[in-house]
Design a protein around this nucleic acid. Structure first.
Lengths: 259, 259
DNA sequence: GACCGACGTCCGATATTTCGGACAAACGGT
DNA sequence: ACCGTTTGTCCGAAATATCGGACGTCGGTC
């Protein structure tokens, strides 16, 4: 049905599909757009017949899976998704514990804190707590990002051999959004260094003026199964960064044991 | 199709239903059970044919809406629900701001903080931050509760006239889970007093040893559209409670203006 | 004021999905 | 080792949900 790697785009085939498949496409579309969208647009962009989409949206609005917004005819996710999502967070032990750590980090340090994992061959933000700064609102929860673009990515693959890593990560993923290319050898060296230091720092990767600090959460076998990290302005002074790194390592350590 | 009040149970009728309706019933069922459940059980309890349920669950697991747990054959919500739910939270202005307040309250005071609203004629916890105590893990996010059972409920209806309130709240909702009955006149007096004081305190309502402190978030017209509250042990000393009340009122005030 | 495009609803036909039941495998109690 | 129960898969039939297209509105543009 779908290649398991990335999110399925859609199926072409006959043109007729089950309602549930159309709904899945609809929700994925909203998640990728990340903005309330008009029904007709969703229909066009997901390849769903207009009449079908109207029908489905009505059903979902009744169930509060979706919400009509603004009276401008757009729809977006509704409260039911939040309820189901909270149930999920509560049901996964490591995530439940990570929430406490991330919230505490963001509150005490005042910078954006995140909890991240791998999904397939992509990096993924699972938890995001904005911290005290007003800008950088974009929480990219649930959005997949190439591994080499991130600090955490350098930790999350550190159990693999170098050639294994290069086979695992799609070649295109070494190209940054602005077109620059990450040299593979440097990437491997970063990983090696990180393993020794117990943390990673990257600056100006996805965003020129942003530094990421990340520490590994490891399972009993020592494999990095997640990371906690801070996202801070690149000009944050070195002493402050060192303190944050220590704080991160302590949190990561607690989560590693808690496992 | 459904009575809008509470969550729809299911439809009887012909026995044949759309996949999407079965999926909605499935998700609601999981949300109410709040525990990973075996597929056959879900099928029986939602009145869905077994073969249909297996088919749908497979589809949903592929989409990561659901997750197979433990290898014991149970399913529960998957990560996709968390992603969609986060998108919802980010998209609603008041909730986004409330998250900051609730997180801050829980972190600094160390007690469980919540953000609550009305949905239909029921009270609903929208945000829940557990605080530092270990017990009382149950976050009841998205679970509907009768208005008279809660402190916040006494604020959320304070824009109505007494007889209006009694018509609005179903008569059965005055009966507590342990069978005791809340006297309607006392309830109305609580509401009146709360309006004057700008907060509510209740003790031993749903739970004998728990006290709730709540403050109102009001829209520009002065109507209470939500509340923030603390859930604390009943034996918390009075000075500490007074401090919490002041803190709550300040947070609630900020949210009222932010609107 | 007439035209054009987008929105939302409605309807009938048919391609498809749901459903029931049958089956093999796994489980568990005696 | 036996047998009753539960799990998960598969299949063909038929009820029906999806789809395409037509229709009435609304709003903006020339």
């Amino acid at each position: 049905m779908k290649s398991d790697g990335t999110v399925d785009i859609q199926d072409k085939a006959t043109g007729r599909a089950r309602g549930i498949d159309r709904v899945i496409a609809l929700m994925n579309h909203l998640h990728q757009r990340r903005v309330p969208t008009r029904i007709a647009d969703i229909a066009r962009e997901t390849g769903t017949p207009r009449s079908t989409m109207y029908e489905l949206v009505n059903t979902l609005v009744e169930a509060r899976w979706l919400e009509l917004r603004d009276a401008d005819g757009t729809v977006y996710f509704g409260p039911a998704m939040h309820y189901f999502g909270s149930d999920y967070l509560d049901s996964v032990d490591l995530i439940r514990k990570a929430r406490v750590e991330v919230a505490h980090l963001a509150e005490t340090v005042g910078e954006t804190a995140q909890f991240c994992t791998l999904e397939g061959d992509k990096y993924l933000v699972v938890l995001n707590e904005p911290g005290r700064r007003m800008f950088r609102i974009s929480s990219e929860i649930g959005i997949k990002v190439p591994i080499p673009w991130t600090a955490s990515g350098r930790l999350l693959v550190d159990h693999m051999a170098p050639d294994e890593i290069l086979r695992f990560i799609p070649a295109d993923d070494f190209t940054l959004p602005d077109g620059r290319r990450i040299v593979e050898d440097e990437f491997l060296r970063d990983i090696d260094q990180a393993r020794g230091q117990g943390f990673v720092r990257t600056t100006g990767l996805v965003d020129r003026f942003t530094t990421c600090l990340a520490a590994p959460v490891r399972d009993p076998a020592g494999r990095c199964i997640a990371t906690i990290c801070f996202v801070v302005p690149a000009d944050t002074d070195e002493d402050a960064q060192q303190t944050m790194i220590d704080t991160l390592k302590a949190s990561a350590e607690r989560l590693s044991l808690a496992r």
